[in-house]
């Protein structure tokens, strides 16, 4: 699987990461997944990082906000096809903590590195079917 990501959505993710630095940011990837060879993002929707204990290196979605966002997306005939979050001053690679808290395979997980407040590289991953690890996922910027 690969991820088709509009440049505007990538810039929105990078800006969100810079805005929330030094805390982690998080949000949804909304788009379509028709079962073909790619998930296609239409837009990135920022959500609040609900982790108040350690927001510089942890994020949690607020469950009620996530539910409302998923419903609102459906009403616009969009789907939640993945998630994004930032790693402030940390590589754009999933951590063991990310793996331990992943949902189902079939989502894209985009991570953007924010170095000293400036957005750096962004990578996408998908969860292996047996949930044992993340696999690199190619991003096609459009």
């Amino acid at each position: 699987m690969s991820l088709i990501l509009p440049r505007a959505a990538l810039e929105a993710i990078r800006s969100h990461g810079e805005r929330d630095y030094p805390n982690e940011c998080c949000g949804l990837l909304l788009g379509s997944a028709d079962g073909g060879a790619a998930r296609e993002v239409r837009e990135a929707q920022p959500l609040r990082n609900a982790n108040t204990a350690s927001p510089r290196n942890r994020f949690d979605f607020d469950p009620a906000e996530h539910l409302a966002a998923q419903r609102a997306a459906r009403e616009r005939e969009l789907e939640v096809i993945g998630f994004y979050h930032s790693h402030p001053d940390h590589p754009a690679r999933p951590t063991q903590f990310d793996l331990d808290h992943a949902a189902w395979p079939g989502y894209s997980y985009v991570i953007v590195s924010i170095r000293q407040g400036k957005a750096g590289e962004a990578n996408s991953f998908e969860l292996a079917e047996d949930r044992s690890r993340f696999l690199d996922e190619e991003i096609e910027i459009r």
Partner: peptide, 12 residues
């Protein structure tokens, strides 16, 4: 439920 974070070594 969605959560994660950078406070651990990279796993993959």
């Amino acid at each position: 439920s969605v959560a994660g974070g950078s406070a651990a070594r990279c796993c993959c």
